[in-house]
Design a protein around this nucleic acid. Sequence first.
DNA 1: TCTCCTAAGTTCAATGAATGAACCCACTGG
DNA 2: CCAGTGGGTTCATTCATTGAACTTAGGAGA
Lengths: 176, 176
Amino acid sequence: MSLGRDYAGQECALASALELIGERWTLLLVRDAFYGVRRYSDFLAHVGAPRAVLAERLQSLVDAGVFERRPYQDSPPRDEYVLTEMGVALWPAVYTLAQWGERYLSSAGPRRIFAHVTCGSPLDPLGMCSSCGMVVAPADVEVRPGPGTSGDGHGNAVSQALRLPHRLLQPLLPPG
Amino acid sequence: MSLGRDYAGQECALASALELIGERWTLLLVRDAFYGVRRYSDFLAHVGAPRAVLAERLQSLVDAGVFERRPYQDSPPRDEYVLTEMGVALWPAVYTLAQWGERYLSSAGPRRIFAHVTCGSPLDPLGMCSSCGMVVAPADVEVRPGPGTSGDGHGNAVSQALRLPHRLLQPLLPPG
DNA sequence: TCTCCTAAGTTCAATGAATGAACCCACTGG
DNA sequence: CCAGTGGGTTCATTCATTGAACTTAGGAGA
């Protein structure tokens, strides 16, 4: 508490938010959760954080109510980490920040394309459907790789699964 | 480069963005810049980062093109840090993240209220004017303290000036 | 001229967090 | 019985952050 962890006396909602999700790796975990990643080993493979940091961040996010930890099989007992409503509400922040990165930091065109799944139209930089004109909930968004994808990222199975077009929040792997 | 600074091989716009503005204190500097803070000593007084970190972060942001450093007086020579177009484009990300913090982490009501300056209506959680229905540029947004403001924050002049209603991006102090 | 003041930094020892490799443990399929 | 898998923990090393002290450069007042 005393050093490096909080933004004391800021009286600011942004500072509160950053105390929770502003630490290194944390927002990448949230991003992957939108992409359908749910298991420790999959986060480990795709995000690339050290194991100790990953465990500590997931625990913090569960404690804060951003993730829920729940069993997905009994034997052997295994848990998965799923975004809560509070976590899903981070979508506009995650999306607009990613779009800023695409716009100002990506030289080879967009790396991922987000579209409204019911009409197929791409989302605008604020996350609204460019033809419906409405805000699109993350569950109705489809991601697919864009022209900026060079194809030589991590070679593991999780990264490959993430390169296939799919809906946000849908689990990467079929249950079991 | 090797440790702790980059997110190697992520091939992701969000990771690129976080390499730039995801370090501790950085997004609070951007927030203060929207609020009209421009000078080293004012950032120091309001953000509360150590001097060395503040200098290093401002330099990084200038190098990246988020801030522009420019003189505001000749004698003695003094510079100020102002958001570029690239920096102003962070507004949706900053705003939506702050709104998420207000919604889920602020118990005593909103700490700051944002309104469309031309019609007086408050902004919705995505930054659109609730009566015009249009996206509002930060230069057309007015901030004022909300009911969640406890009043006992930092006692310095910068914090007090920031508690007065004012337009975003307008300098805190009159030039000179 | 001498001295104090302000803005904007730099330097540095101490502290705390991140890293990655190795280890651990419960369970399970062969 | 034994190797493999998922989900961690432990630990020495490296790196970043902190806060206090110091620096630099130009005014402003006496």
